[in-house]
Write a protein that binds this DNA or RNA. Structure first.
Length: 488
RNA sequence: GGCCCCAUCGUCUAGUGGCUAGGACGCAUGGUUCUCAUCCAUGUAACAGGGGUUCGACUCCCCUUGGGGCUACCA
């Protein structure tokens, strides 16, 4: 098995532009990227748009935006040309045609004139006989001169690879070891379509060779077609890259993750308020394990510790609970400035009043220990700008009464009023209250609970003193007055 | 159906012939606490089944079962 040397690692992420970048694709990109970074190699983005039917407008943008959001910047790719471009397959058609022709000339491929009707009929027959669907090699033995003539005459045709009909082929895989396939079950797959576009099988192999890809790291769904790729490399006389087939990310129901399973688009997670750090952290752990008990990682820690031999073989279920946990942990790791910066878009989206003037850093701090997603910062701190109407009864602590509550609210008002504007900070206010509680020998909750409700209008809210500080002296007093009136 | 991959708590996983099978999420309980959280502690829960190999199997081999992928002129 060829050894990985530090200088020559070149890997690629090769998505098809058929829509958004889903979580599974992102995980493939991440593993490629981590591997490249780890080995100081090159990470390439290649767009595999050889299927004209499935092409979706703007998906290249969605893909690059998703990658950029996660910090997976590519060294070569669309808009960042290296010496192996272009990096969009539809712009490389001549290359594929040339190589396909070469294959035909070397008797590794052949022209096929079978119509789709004949093919579907064949498939129906095979199905009826409970046979495995497989091309019957109808055109394989056509006279090559004759076939060439028909092609020249403009007859519609495809090109198929000419696989051996017997024997076995072994795929060497970095995560699965050696996997053996029998040629007798392999189909003479189409490599050039009637429309002159190559299929994945051909374009992928040619580009990986031409782009000097050292390691093909992709999802397990590609494993069954790998022997065909290996055949192609051999037919061209090219050196094989190292293959590594990653386990699939499964939906909670157990199948391949798909749109039916709720959010699968990377950008959707961004919009819901997940940190790219959390998404990356989470999917890194889905299929890879550091062999230590560490679970929360920074990107540089991932690069540091990543290696393909710590990759798992079995598919993993995408577990939202775990993602939420990691997101919470990553949120708590952010400093106030950064947290505010990350939360700002969600506040903007919600038409938060006078956002320019709001001390977002302080506001957001109130919710930091309480949010699962960044988006939750908004509802969690809404009361700061908008004191909702609340039932006066909730001002009264358990095992207390209206009269005592009123008394304590008046006490709070007196204390707050006495605090200097400059000293109106959480720590000072807390000291003030604690001293008073001790002096009067009252229960902490009997004083603090009414203040909390008065200031927030809520039963569950952040630290009373931090709320007070964010609200400021004037607004705090106003809200206390409001509560006092409710108790009178 | 055929081919291929996989198989430890519900989930993500550690384990590489001898362990009370470890950690994390979740859940439960308790602690901290004015609330909700955070944080901390404790508990809960697993080697799919059957054969071998071996002094000894979660670990190695085979079969069964189960799950997944592929089976297109899609990637």
């Amino acid at each position: 098995m060829p050894k990985t040397t530090t200088e020559n690692v070149r890997v690629r992420f090769a998505p098809s532009p058929t829509g958004f970048l889903h979580i599974g694709g992102l995980r493939t990109a991440l593993f490629n990227w981590l591997f490249a970074k780890k080995h100081k190699g090159t990470f390439i983005l290649r767009i595999e748009d050889t299927d004209q039917q499935r092409y979706v407008e703007k998906s290249v943008e969605a893909i690059t935006e998703s990658l950029a959001w996660c910090g997976l910047h590519y060294d070569e790719g669309p808009g960042k040309e290296g010496d192996c471009g272009p990096y969009i397959q539809s712009q490389r058609l001549e290359i594929y045609r040339k190589y396909a022709k070469e294959l035909v000339q070397n008797d590794k491929a052949y022209y096929c004139f079978c119509t789709t009707e004949r093919l579907s009929e064949l498939k129906a027959q095979q199905a009826a006989q409970k046979l495995a669907p497989r091309y019957d090699q109808h055109c394989r033995s056509l006279d090559s001169v004759e076939a060439e003539k028909r092609v020249q005459a403009g007859e519609p045709h495809v090109i198929r690879m000419k696989l051996p009909n017997e024997g076995t082929i072994v795929v060497d895989d970095l995560v699965r070891g050696q996997v053996e396939f029998s040629y007798r079950y392999l189909d003479d797959a189409v490599i050039m379509k009637t429309d002159g576009f190559p299929t994945y099988q051909l374009a992928n192999v040619i580009d990986d060779h031409l782009m000097r890809i050292s390691h093909v790291i992709r999802a397990e769904e590609w494993l069954p077609s790998t022997p065909k790729h290996v055949f192609l490399y051999q037919a061209f006389g090219w050196e094989l890259p190292q293959f590594a087939h990653l386990p699939l990310i499964l939906s909670p129901q157990g199948g391949k993750l798909s749109k039916r399973d709720g959010a699968v688009s990377t950008l959707e997670y961004r919009d819901m308020g997940y940190l790219p750090e959390a998404i990356v952290n989470f999917i890194a752990l889905l299929g890879w394990n550091p062999k230590t008990e560490q679970e929360i990682f920074t990107m540089s820690e991932l690069i540091e510790q990543f290696s393909l031999d710590k990759t798992n073989k079995s598919g993993g279920i995408f577990n939202l609970d775990k993602l939420n946990f990691i997101n919470g942990r990553q949120i708590r790791l952010l400093d106030a400035t950064e947290l505010a910066r990350r939360c700002r878009p969600y506040f903007e989206k919600s038409n938060w009043p006078s956002l320019e003037k709001a001390p977002l850093e302080k506001i957001v701090r109130l919710a930091q220990d309480r949010m699962v997603t960044l988006a939750e910062a908004v509802p969690l701190t809404k009361f700061i700008v908008e004191l909702g109407d609340y039932d006066p009864a909730i001002l009264i602590p358990k095992k207390s009464n209206q009269a005592d509550t009123l008394k304590n609210l008046l006490l709070a008002k007196e204390m707050y009023a006495g605090a200097g504007e400059d000293n109106f900070v959480a720590s000072e206010l807390k000291e003030l209250c604690i001293n008073k509680i001790k002096a009067l020998a009252i229960k902490t909750g009997d004083l603090l609970w009414p203040i909390r409700v008065a200031l927030s209008g809520l039963k569950a809210s952040p630290d009373v003193f931090e709320i007070s500080e964010v609200l400021g002296k004037q607004e705090s007093l106003r809200r206390l007055d409001l509560a006092i009136r409710k108790m009178e």
